[in-house]
Amino acid sequence: MKMAQVYLDGTRLEFEDRENRSTIRELIDTIEKDLAGLRRFVMELWIDGEMMPEWRGSQVLSRPLSIYSDFKLKTASMEEVALEGLDLVQEYMKVTKENIDACVKDLRVGNGRADALMSSVFDGFIEIVKTVDALARGGEKYRMDLFRENPAQYFNPVIRGLEELREARDGRDSVASADILEYELKPLIDDMEENLFHFYA
């Protein structure tokens, strides 16, 4: 019977695929358990020469190992992962601020793109909060000092602002929507950028 070959950072591993019923998730879990002591994570997953984007939490993890020939896993240190997360959240903040500026302008002058831009702003804030929260919890777990102050203090004002924005949008109050974006939500991002980070990734 053909055995799937597993490589971790270029080194081949022996992995016992019991009765050919192990899943990719079991493979990753087993490896990450071993890596935990080394403060490392699996960052990239390649299956049969193809890199899997967005693989964490995807359906691909529930597939059996036996249907593929080879798996290549690349790891990164906890610090590298955190740095990448910080980079990502700062990128989200930058893009969300740009979207806010464009959305405010469109709302003020009455252009038709405002609705689409506002959806992007909502998505941007959700990603910012999710990523900052994940980083904060990861930092606590692995004892990494990722933020200068507790980021959770911003979550409620952001949620409140988004709720007000939703109400203004549903009431088709373009001026209130623009005010909330320009004078409430954007300053929150400015504050987070200024106060949360030790440095810019």
Binding site: R108, G171, R172, D173, V175, A176, A178, D179, E182, Y183
Partner: peptide, 9 residues
């Protein structure tokens, strides 16, 4: 009619 006509800021 419940709608703001100019910025409140």
């Amino acid at each position: 009619e419940g709608r703001l006509f100019h910025s409140a800021y």
